[in-house]
């Protein structure tokens, strides 16, 4: 099994924009990449996680301005169905060059949609930049609420930032208090569909990124295909990112590989378990 997928290069990077970094999750890679691509006309707009109706609930939006892209900074740790506005971004917003960010499963959905564009007439050839984010599992909004409000004892209205790292789930409040619980307690609230996922680092994206492997405030970035490489190199040349060789940072790719292996091995076992779930009866396996 190829745990990290195909990639051309891997680096540690962070945005050079203080404005982006002020509210970004880690290195501000996705936000800066889209801002640069929008400015350069590489994309006409990007599908990102905007603010939904409830506190900390994301809503997929088609961002066509820098302000809208900036409004989507940071990880929300609950589901944002970005693929759901793909058709809208072309038909209603009239985008010819669409940027999209998504979890590994959303990148899988995107590539499947490009090969089997059922019901997406004249849409899938307009994908100009697909950025994937590392993902171990995701939570429904209600699960996230349960974790933050019930376990961490933090009201979602006063939550400033959440993070998963060092084996813990962290909740930071607006007034500076920090609440943390062992990540183990959150496992039962995970989205069930995540338990059969065989991708940790968004293998099918043009560029994929996440915090794991790089020091605090930096992100690990995989540049995966020609399109990704082309855009990434231009952005680095334009001074959008500062980069370090991934070999020079701790903990580096070793940790990424370890976590990817753990996730995929665990989920392959889950698929085997599902195959023999009942008495001479199994559950459906989506991978054929």
């Amino acid at each position: 099994m190829d745990y990290l997928g195909k990639y051309k290069t891997a680096v540690a990077a962070r945005s050079t924009s203080a404005e982006v970094l002020r509210c970004s999750q880690d290195g501000g890679i996705v936000t800066s990449m889209f801002l640069y691509a929008l400015e350069e006309g590489i994309i006409d707009g990007a599908i990102v996680a905007g603010q939904g109706e409830n506190p900390w609930q994301p809503k997929p939006i088609v961002a066509t301005s820098a302000e809208e892209i900036l409004s989507a900074r940071g990880t929300r740790y609950n589901i944002c169905p970005n693929m759901s506005v793909l058709k809208k971004s072309v038909r209603q917003y009239g985008l010819d060059k669409v940027g999209i960010v998504g979890t590994p499963c959303q990148m899988q959905a995107l590539r499947k949609a490009q090969l089997y564009p059922v019901g997406l007439r004249d849409v899938t050839d307009k994908i100009a930049l697909a950025i994937g984010i590392f993902c171990m599992e995701n939570f429904s909004y209600q699960s996230m609420k349960q974790i933050v409000e019930d376990h961490c004892n933090v009201d979602l209205h006063s939550l400033n930032k959440t993070d998963i790292g060092k084996g813990k789930y962290w909740a930071y409040t607006n007034r500076g208090a920090v609440s943390q619980i062992p990540l183990k307690l959150t496992h039962k609230y995970e989205q069930p569909g995540c338990h059969v996922c065989l991708d940790y680092v968004a293998n099918l994206a043009d560029i994929s990124t996440g915090s794991v492997g790089s020091p605090d405030g930096w992100s690990t970035v995989f540049i995966r295909n020609n399109n990704g490489e082309n855009i990434w190199n231009k952005a680095v040349a334009a001074g959008v990112f500062e980069t370090k060789p991934i070999e020079s940072v701790k903990p580096g790719l070793e940790l990424v590989t370890k976590l990817a292996t753990e996730k995929i091995t665990k989920n392959q076992k889950e698929l085997e378990h599902r195959a023999k779930f009942g008495v001479n009866k199994g559950l459906r396996n989506p991978y054929i």
């Binding site: 609930q57 997929p60 609950n78 589901i79 944002c80 169905p81 970005n82 693929m83 759901s84 506005v85 793909l86 058709k87 809208k88 998504g102 979890t103 499963c105 959303q106 959905a109 499947k112 949609a113 059922v118 019901g119 997406l120 849409v123 995701n138 429904s140 909004y141 209600q142 989205q191 069930p192 569909g193 995540c194 338990h195 059969v196 996922c197 559950l283 459906r284 989506p286």
Partner: peptide, 30 residues
């Protein structure tokens, strides 16, 4: 029946985008 009931949905929203009559909306990620 074949996706959500089977514990397989990941809330990506592709079904919603593919529906020609906009019968599918995403609510709370599903």
């Amino acid at each position: 029946t074949k996706v959500i009931n089977q514990g397989l949905c990941i809330g990506c929203g592709t079904c919603s985008a593919s529906c020609p009559v906009y019968a599918i909306t995403m609510q709370y990620g599903k």
